[in-house]
Amino acid sequence: MKKDKKMTLTLPAEELMSPGHLACQGCGATLAMRYMLKALGQRTVLCIPACCWAVIDGPYPYSCLDAPIYHCAFETAASTATGVKAGLEMTGDTETTVVAWAGDGGTFDIGIQALSGAAERNDDIIYVCYDNEAYMNTGIQRSSATPYGAWTTTTPVKHFKDRPKKDIVAIMAAHRIPYIATASVSHPEDFVKKMKKAKAIKGTRFFHVFAPCPTGWKSRPDDSVKLARLAVQNAYFPLFEIEDGEKVTINLKLKEKKPVADYIRLQGRFRHLSEAHIAAIQDEVDARWARLLKSC
């Protein structure tokens, strides 16, 4: 080992997640939670609806997080967080950050009306959607976050999903909320920076976090971070932020995009796709990237 070099950690050293949790090997959602708590600190209340994190956390009365958790019904993540925030304000506590932490099913499909309501009222909460692109907790069913061509247990290989992913960020931008950001577990410094920025803003703040799931994507557990990084580098999941629904800032400007095929071929859920299908996905990703570049 080099003696002279000093170790510099790029993330806050404070650890608010303890080992012993029940996540699968190589879970991206645990990484997302770890980075978020590093950024927000201990004065945080989490409202978690039915999602992977409702299980990962551990059975009652045990918990692997050093922050209070409110387990709520599937569709009520945003409204529960609103209520918790209102309750805290009644007791005079304006410091504590209230976070609604939901998966893609609880955001894109089931929780969207509560989320839309909270965004319309501009309630002072942070809503984080960690996106693993299907209902992974209940057994890999299709959600509206599932991308084109993906296998799930409800979209088998013969009838794979033929519709693109719902653009949740555009939906949230249409609500004109103060802050929207996308983040990926492969870029934790960017994630922590955005989370700290969001903590200082008042109003509804929305995060779309890309969290690979080796179990549902049929990928190798050691490829989780690599997949997330490839998704950023080929503009499948670009990193950007939107302030007040208008001002778009792209955090990672790509000079040269990697081909989507590298990302697709690492995952078993896309194994049945032919070259023509992958070309269609590449076209869609290119169109989405061009649209994003035009908007800023």
Partner: peptide, 23 residues
Amino acid sequence: VYRSEREMPLMVISVGSQTHNLT
């Protein structure tokens, strides 16, 4: 370990109480 439901705490015990689970 709690012998009955009455002994259970009303709040979730935090601060790494899940570390008994040696994964």
